[in-house]
Design a protein around this nucleic acid. Sequence first.
DNA 1: TTGTACGCGTTATCAC
DNA 2: GTGATAACGCGTACAA
Lengths: 337, 337
Amino acid sequence: MNIYDVSKHAGVSIATVSRVLNGNPNVSEKTREKVLKVMDDLGYTPNVFARGLGLDTMHTVGIMCSDSSDPYLAGAIYYLERSLRSHGYDSILCCTGYDLEVKQKYFSLLRSKRVDAIILAGSKFVEMRPRDNAYLLEAAADLPIMLVNGWLEGDNIYSTLCDDREAVRQAVSLLIRTGCQNILYLYSSHSYSGLSKQAGYKDALEAAGIPLRQELIHQCSKDAEASRDLLLSLADQGLVFDAVMTSDDSLAVGAVKYAHARGISIPDKLSIIGYNNSLLARCTDPEITSVDSKVEALCTATVNTLMGVFSGENVPSRTTIASDLIIRSTTKRRFQT
Amino acid sequence: MNIYDVSKHAGVSIATVSRVLNGNPNVSEKTREKVLKVMDDLGYTPNVFARGLGLDTMHTVGIMCSDSSDPYLAGAIYYLERSLRSHGYDSILCCTGYDLEVKQKYFSLLRSKRVDAIILAGSKFVEMRPRDNAYLLEAAADLPIMLVNGWLEGDNIYSTLCDDREAVRQAVSLLIRTGCQNILYLYSSHSYSGLSKQAGYKDALEAAGIPLRQELIHQCSKDAEASRDLLLSLADQGLVFDAVMTSDDSLAVGAVKYAHARGISIPDKLSIIGYNNSLLARCTDPEITSVDSKVEALCTATVNTLMGVFSGENVPSRTTIASDLIIRSTTKRRFQT
DNA sequence: TTGTACGCGTTATCAC
DNA sequence: GTGATAACGCGTACAA
């Protein structure tokens, strides 16, 4: 069942069939209808491989992410796929894990599949050492590289990010305004996004004239239990804190667990703010105040930019999206003490 | 940069290049090395479109799911993709939502992309009315259809499921053994999986000689708040219950919230069991006893079966995987009252 | 062991 | 408005 069969049955040439197929206006209404009827009767579907061979594209983009079961990334993938499909593009998913070599291997695998673009979802694809990103710069000569919540400068590389720095600055400012003085900062990653958040924490302290204390800043693996245990041990060591700002909801969940374990009342004695406004933030009692990092907006903006690139428009290489602070019950009402 | 360029530079024919490319043993070691060197120098990558055209496959399978951001499905997609990739297959993701027409539309879209198989992840793809599944039966004539935690009988259709019925039976038996008498059952869906779970609930009651009471069985949308509110209103109506068995962790989270809202102590006055053993089960205080439905095993078994189908082996059309009950703190220790 | 020639199903470029 | 025909790049009988 191919274009030749259709052309024979319709008594026209394959060129005409192709024209009908692609909406070329240079076909008389009469022939168009005739051809369409035959296609329908025969249940003809054009062969995408042949089309891909001719056009050198199958309207497919690669989506890479470190772990698609992470709630944040799962959301991102959902919105990316949906948005791409609405523009007629398929998504090839590729979960890479966190190892650089593996990431590079899968990246070139994806390139060899001749996808039209590669979207890197999450902030884990930009390495600290510039030479470790060289492969991205090189690849960008052939196809657009889109970063979702990551940032890398280069030709044909486009970044869409949440303004994490400002988001954390606002969140920490709220903590300060509501009377917190010793604000612990828990983070899990040194990615661009991770560093931005930490900068926001410092911004807020500085604006309030509160001295920065390194002993209040701690790294912790992205896991509620790890976070709870870390807080328990910090408290045991005599560290005093009346608020915890975290770089991820899972860490905030751990903070809630810590407070419960020690019988500390939230938010009176301990305020907590999470990040990403995921499902997790609404699972605990009390529910967690969290930064909505606007995944959906981030993803649709990424896809829109990509479509702009495809159609040769002059699109910005960097797009920033503002966050929202969703106030729930782990923070005090404003100006309270 | 194609096979001709390589053949010219290496001074051999394209056939030889192709043989080298595909590991055909009928090439002298000398020529093989020569060709490999040229490929490397030129940075040659075979064109997958051309290859796909000739072989009528691009080693790609379609994964359909209703919502890839649902924690359970996100996990399934992660494991499916990983397993498929380990076998050299790419995954095209397609999130369909819950509307039958949309599912059908995307299904045929995926077929027109000539994927080698379609995996339906989650129990939402088998409809109640047989004629609504006709499109799957038809399609199975052309390509294998794999159901992950769904069941449909038909040629070239393969189902891999968790033994949900037995899982819930065991869970409810535990509740009974630990002294619970009035066990509420909360579920969200009437899918095959949903019905199996409910049957397990009935099995356990029957085995213990406890009469089944319809007023203890309630449907609720898969959302913690909805579940909490439902329980609050049931309690207000005077319904008495000392345990809640749920078909999903999110509903169990709602039950915990209900208990907190009413000051009911867990598990003394209220036992709770969730399903899927997701992240959510470990976010609450106390952490939730939950059925581990073995997503990873389910997914790798699905992919293994699929590989068997591809290689013409005689594989079972239905594979069942046993669950585990992960006991945490929302259930009493055994034989306690 | 190696090379030639053709098929795969489109799209695009001509000429009419 | 329509039709022939040449790409597109690979796999593979078949011939040598």
